[in-house]
Nucleic acid binder design. Sequence first.
DNA 1: TTGGCGATGCTG
DNA 2: AGCATCGCCAAT
Length: 204
Amino acid sequence: MNCPAASPVIEPEWLSRPAPEVAPDLVGCTLVRQFADGNVLRGVIVETEAYAPGDPAFHAYRGRSPRNWIVFEQAGHAYVYLIYGMYHCFNVVTDRTGIPSAVLIRALQLETPPPGIDLPPAQLHRVAAGPGKLCRVLQIDLTDNAQVLQPGGRFWLEHRLPAMQELLEQQPLHLVQTTRIGLTKGVDTPWRWYLKQSPAVSKP
DNA sequence: TTGGCGATGCTG
DNA sequence: AGCATCGCCAAT
């Protein structure tokens, strides 16, 4: 047996905080995707954005709707939506029930090549750089909306590996905070975080 | 290296 | 009408 190291699973309670607190903490953690055939693909989260109550850029800004209802539910669910008619975006629902909050996962650093994709090994770090590309490579679509994030399911989250935790504790400037991308409202709210020097970030 | 634009379909 | 995107192509 030659199992890769894995950190403890992230529980819903850990996610039951405001999105602007959870989003930076999720950088460096691992998102695990289990496909229908049982195969598992994992990637380190290298870029996140927070969306919270009162935020005009948030889908839930004008209240509950058939699309966004899940972000009002308990922390630890997936919120998946279609954007520009052709891409999907994957979010982690955070905070308490009734408080709409979500963290958009914008980029992953994959640890192994994704299934069914031939690519130059040098390009591995680009295939999940961006929220739409991430969902394409993880085969995420609207059927994944409202899934519970838990081991054995389609997705779960794992805490930072010790080396990553040490890096961010000793070099906190490696976690960069800046403004969000692709918005027309809330453009000045600094709720995007990314891992400095990661080649897999969508926009360094 | 940067900037503009079209694809494409759901949302409120 | 607008959109939490992406990749192509032109201009620099």
